[in-house]
Amino acid sequence: MRIPVLPTLLVLAGVAIMIGLGLWQLGRLEQKQALLARYARASGMSSDVPFPQSESAAEPVYYRHARVDCREVAGVTAKAGTNAKGEAGVAHHAACRLAGGGTADIVLGWSRAPASPDWRGGEVMGVIAPGPRLVADPPLAGLGPNAVPDPSEIPNNHLAYAVQWFFFAATALVIYALAVRKRLRG
């Protein structure tokens, strides 16, 4: 008996793919670390930037401060949220039409009650968070403060994923070696 060629090639191809995925995750780790460092620097800046009108324009200004003038409130909705003390409750979001055109999702503030406040618009200051949304600081409409968007809360699991892919590759090799050994013995 000899080592089967086609199954061996298939297992080696699978192992090569898994190793490649592990290496790709290591590359993603470096990219995510750079992104998180940029977000951390941005969160420390106090100067205002214009509120972005698209996801592609938003990513470079996440965690920066902005100021908008909400001319018309299209509606207020309640979503699960966390306050500045880390307590779970309701974050109240307003869909705003801005002076000068465009729209913004404004997180007005936090409460325990799901009933939306009656907020008619006005000037809003806050922090741009992923979405994009503007988390009001100070809170509006008599609501409590939301948790301040924090880039350190963004998960960075790429090292764990890389280790997982390398483990899968090693496991596949061990299982295949045991199967071939059993076949050759038997």
Rank of each mutant, 00 (worst) to 15 (best):
H93F: 14
E87R: 15
P117V: 05
A91P: 01
G144P: 04
I154Q: 14
W110S: 08
E153V: 12
G142K: 09
V90I: 15
N146V: 10
A91Q: 12
A94S: 07
A115F: 00
I154Y: 12
R120D: 08
S152I: 02
A115S: 13
C96N: 05
A95D: 13
A99S: 14
W110H: 15
S111K: 05
L143I: 11
R120Y: 01
G102C: 08
W110A: 06
V124Q: 01
G86R: 07
A99T: 13
E153D: 14
A129I: 02
L134R: 06
N156T: 05
K85F: 04
G122L: 09
A147M: 12
M125S: 15
V107T: 12
N83S: 08
I154H: 11
L143H: 07
D105E: 13
V107F: 09
G89Q: 10
L108W: 06
A104I: 09
C96V: 08
D137G: 13
M125E: 15
V148S: 10
N156D: 15
D137V: 03
A94D: 05
W119Y: 12
G126T: 01
P139E: 03
N83A: 03
P138R: 03
G109Y: 02
A94C: 09
G121T: 12
H158R: 11
A95R: 11
A95F: 07
V124S: 01
A99M: 04
M125C: 00
A94V: 05
D105H: 01
H93P: 00
G86S: 09
A88R: 14
G126R: 02
I128V: 13
E153Q: 15
W110F: 13
D105W: 04
A136W: 11
G122Q: 12
E153C: 00
P151G: 04
G109P: 02
H92K: 11
P149W: 11
L140W: 07
A115H: 00
V135S: 04
I106Q: 04
G144Y: 02
I128F: 01
P139N: 07
G100P: 11
I154P: 00
P138H: 08
E123N: 03
G101Q: 10
L98K: 06
E153M: 13
A104E: 07
G89E: 07
P117G: 03
V107Q: 11
A104F: 04
A136E: 09
A147W: 04
V124W: 00
D150R: 11
N146K: 06
A113H: 09
M125W: 07
G89M: 11
P155N: 10
V90P: 00
D105M: 13
T82K: 12
